[in-house]
Design a protein around this nucleic acid. Structure first.
Lengths: 206, 206
DNA sequence: GTCTATAAATGGATAGAC
DNA sequence: GTCTATCCATTTATAGAC
């Protein structure tokens, strides 16, 4: 693969994701993508087998991202366990800011939100991103915290679900519309999540 | 409007919603709709100005549904306030079962999930259905419960948000994919929500 | 109120030159 | 690796007969 080859391919992928996340895969034409990338339609077929191959490549890479996150989580697990109230809240807020709103993954989530309705692979990936992956991680975190006596004894998986329900709630409430993410929405979301996490903290930490 | 006119128009609307909710508005063609309804494409233009008019009619009616729900909520508010634990949990579970999973509104939510990404009217309606409407209602419910001494003093709006976050969490976790709703998913969802609501009840009710 | 016929645009994809 | 040129299917929408 030559450098310029890789470059065009990446630009196609980025542009496609940009369009897919607002218009949905099937509404976006190869022509739309090419108009923005600045190449002719036929050139796309040098890099990808067909239109679906573009989508599959994005899904595949996101799957890899999930796997990578999983092992990272495990590495940093022990470190993330000493938590005063402010730090605990900051972690939750920055999870939305740094992970869910991270440019690329946010676009992927938006795209999956559309495609999951009729694409099973997209549905599975979306479920993993918003439920399985974070809940698995949080379960381990709360489990360790209980053993160390920071959190009062309880079912760590249920606590993780309660935690994740707050994250999802705020994320969906403030960032799922058609408007671009405003700094107003960002700070409202941070404020609401802070309040909810404060209460969460006071409920379970000791 | 003659009776048969109304009938075809309604069938077109139902069929369109059926297709929109899985494939998205722009992917579905007038032909697709007509094939199922059993009429020719041109007949659609007798009932609707154009394709977008079909979508707008669905959105408009859903808006009316929301308004109607709002006034209904107010009427039955006083009645819904005497609640032992089991009844409280049953209300939450049946909210998903009877309202969010109610055939028509479930389809609308699925359709809005797709369209909200690029259609501001759809985004607003979706937000109202999943956040504004239920939270407003629950805020009033908890407010009354506090005054009557059933729930311990707190900010009713925040409690309503915590409540709704559990509903949304379970609803999205079990019913947002591409597969049809199985009775397995139904009972898993009911079980998980019951557990979460039990804990919620024990936290706030006295 | 529904049909046939058709216009005009847009879609995915390929062949072959450079 | 990108281009021109082209094919063929599908789409929205309209005109006008019945």
């Amino acid at each position: 693969m030559s450098p310029s080859d890789k470059n065009t391919k990446e630009i196609i992928l980025d542009t496609a994701l940009d369009l897919f996340q607002t218009n949905g895969y099937s509404t976006v034409s190869i022509r739309d993508i090419c108009k923005i990338v600045g190449i002719k339609e036929s050139s796309v077929y040098y890099h990808f087998k067909n239109k679906e191959d573009i989508l599959n490549t994005i899904l595949l890479r996101t799957g890899a991202w999930v796997t990578e996150k999983k092992s990272r989580f495990r590495e940093t697990l022990e470190a993330s366990v000493r938590v005063p109230r402010e730090a605990f809240i900051a972690v939750g807020v920055s999870y939305i800011e740094k992970c869910l709103l991270e440019e690329k993954i946010f676009k992927v989530i938006r795209m999956l939100t559309i495609e999951k309705q009729r694409n099973e692979a997209a549905a599975d990936l979306c479920h993993e991103l918003l439920f399985t992956l974070p809940t698995e991680h949080q379960t381990q975190v709360f489990s360790i915290m209980m053993k160390k006596g920071f959190v009062r004894e309880d079912n760590p998986e249920v606590i993780a679900s309660e935690y994740q329900s707050l994250i999802i709630f705020v994320f969906q409430k403030y960032f799922s519309g058609s408007k671009p993410i405003s700094s107003d929405a960002r700070s409202s979301a941070a404020q609401e999540l802070s309040l909810l996490l404060k209460r969460f903290y006071d409920r379970y930490f000791q």
